[in-house]
Design a protein around this nucleic acid. Structure first.
Length: 503
RNA sequence: GCCGCCGUAGUAUAGUCCGGCCAAGUAUGCGGGCCUCUCAAGCCCGUGACCCGGGUUCAAAUCCCGGCGGCGGCACCA
């Protein structure tokens, strides 16, 4: 039976079987496990050691979005507990907040871990009393040997009082960096050696490495696993969304939760994120030695300056979601999402990058009326008058094609016959043909009495161009006609600065 | 090396838990067309994927086993 015959038969006998089922097209993030409306609490916990990057935007956006979806709460927490190797960058705190706000992310609660040290110390003492942690003064190499052998260090089984005493000595400054650490008891036979009695606190000499917020006030600092683990509980976080590099940390933190008798939040790990053509790693970005808002950077402020809309970044992050596999965002995909958002706001501007002069032979002056946007009349219009014999600038390429085709149409102005090249004056000569739109000819942008423009194509460099005079008044997004979208940086010395965005 | 996670079109994602409505959806890209004083936007048509090999089953993207591939972790970083 052919498909058609089968369909016919079905239609006759069981018409209900052919009813189209309304297929739910799910937009947005998949549901969260064990989530209840009104009770979800998520967090974004950046280390303020650099500007926020697109990579950071993923946990920030999905965490915030989940809180919003479930009408829950969202926490912003700065994890600045390493004044030595990942020393916080003082300006990063405010920069990250600004970037989050720009992305449309509002937080219900704000914390700085460096201001929570007393809380961590109290909990540490409690943990020691419970026999869940100990102060270890073994030399690192010795400890490593024991760990690899799956054996306890001599301090592990000492009574809590000994450790509490030693802890006081640490506070009193009797131990230097590396001379003592606090370890959480886990499983000495755990297949992953790094899980075995992991370090919860270490000494950092803040007289040499002052913390930007607390100076040298504290010298015993919690590690990520202690501080984040404890805070997620204390702050009532129900769902933790973080990258897969934290998978082992979840294993480690589970031991902490067991010692305290706490319930672990749901933890979701997602894969690595790549953006075609960009470096996403903070350390590599730092090495590049560029300003935080350089448009070549995949920092939030870099993308912002280049012209990406916050909605576009949000949308793409929600689309990518929280899968465990790695995701590589293609630039054209990001551009497409962005284009849809900015296109209605982008005024069309005529700009010539490889200019050649053309003299217009006209019987009488002509005026071109150009709307700033073909579909959005509210954006207004401007007009230019051209007089007989006046010089305009066109793209070299367009003039070459005009020569081949015999003519050219200057946008909204008129059709011209290509009448040759005036060697003496170094000008192409275009002769007026007609006003009405002539589809035989290519429609091109043109400029007269232009203003200087600099177009910065991130990754390629800056190039000079000539822009129509009215362009001086522009701001925000523009579309360089036939070239692509750009962001207006500003005008100085009567030069218009543009950053090329995408096609 | 050891431990762990993941493999759906060029890219991203839906479907995988609970096998059949999947002859695999959507977006973007790409090709073509329509519309349009931009090569933009909009509209229409087309293109293109279940990592490989076995097994279970009437039926496998989905369950099982084995390969292969990618990624992550193995810090007194976060």
């Amino acid at each position: 039976m052919s498909l058609e015959e089968q369909e016919k038969l079905l239609k006759e006998r069981f018409p209900e079987a052919l009813q189209e089922k309304p297929k739910e097209v799910k937009k947005g993030l998949p549901p969260l496990p064990n989530a209840e409306k009104g009770k979800v609490k998520t967090r974004f916990a950046p280390n303020p050691d650099f500007y926020m990057t697109l990579g950071n935007a993923r946990p920030a956006i999905v965490s915030h979005e989940y809180a919003r979806m479930y009408e829950g709460k969202f926490v912003l927490r700065f994890e600045d507990t390493d004044p030595r190797t990942k020393r916080p960058m003082p300006e990063a705190y405010e920069a990250i907040k600004e970037d989050l706000e720009w992305l449309g992310i509002r937080w219900d609660e704000l914390y700085f871990q460096s201001h929570r040290m007393e809380i961590y110390y109290d909990l540490l003492k409690e943990l020691i009393r419970r026999g869940g942690a100990y102060v270890c003064t073994c030399p690192p190499e010795r400890w490593r040997e024991l760990r690899d052998a799956g054996k306890p260090c001599p301090h592990r089984d000492e009574p809590p009082e000994v450790h509490l005493e030693r802890l006081e000595k640490i506070f009193a400054g009797e131990y230097g960096e590396g001379e003592a650490v606090v370890r959480v008891k886990t499983d000495l036979k755990h297949p992953d050696p790094s899980v075995r009695d992991w370090v919860a606190f270490r000494i950092i000499d803040t007289s040499k490495h002052p913390h930007p917020l607390t100076g040298d006030e504290y010298r015993l600092w919690p590690t990520y696993n202690f501080a984040a683990g404890v805070d997620d509980y204390l702050m009532g976080i129900t769902h933790v969304l973080r990258a897969r590099e934290h998978q082992q940390n979840t294993v480690k933190q589970r031991f902490l939760y067991e010692h305290f008798g706490w319930k672990m939040p749901e933890v979701i790990h997602f894969g690595r994120l790549k953006l075609e053509g960009f470096v996403l790693s903070k350390s590599k970005m730092r090495e590049m030695g560029l300003r935080g808002d350089d448009p070549r950077l995949a920092t939030i402020r870099g993308l912002r300056r280049r012209g990406f809309a916050p909605e576009a970044i949000r949308e793409i992050m929600i689309e990518v979601g929280v899968k465990k596999s790695d995701a590589s965002i293609s630039f054209s995909n990001l551009a497409a999402v962005n284009r849809k958002i900015i296109d209605p706001k982008a005024r069309r501007v005529m700009l010539v990058e490889e200019p050649a002069e053309a003299r217009l032979e006209l019987p009488e002056p002509l005026t071109a009326e150009l709307p700033w946007h073909p579909k959005v009349p509210e954006l207004g219009r401007r007009s230019y008058e051209v007089r007989p014999g006046e010089t305009v600038y066109l793209e070299k390429k367009d003039l070459i094609r005009a020569k081949k085709k015999g003519g050219i149409r200057l946008m909204e102005l008129a059709n011209f016959r290509y009448a040759g090249y005036d060697e003496e004056r170094g000008q192409h000569v275009l002769e007026f043909e007609s006003r009405e739109l002539d589809k035989r000819y290519e429609i091109v942008q043109w400029v007269k009495e232009p203003v200087r423009a600099v177009v910065w194509r991130p990754g390629e460099g800056k190039g000079c161009a000539l822009a129509e005079p009215e362009a001086r008044e522009l701001g925000g997004w523009v579309q360089m006609i036939r070239k692509g979208y750009a962001k207006v940086e500003g005008v100085d010395d009567s030069t218009l600065h543009l950053i090329y965005l995408h096609e």
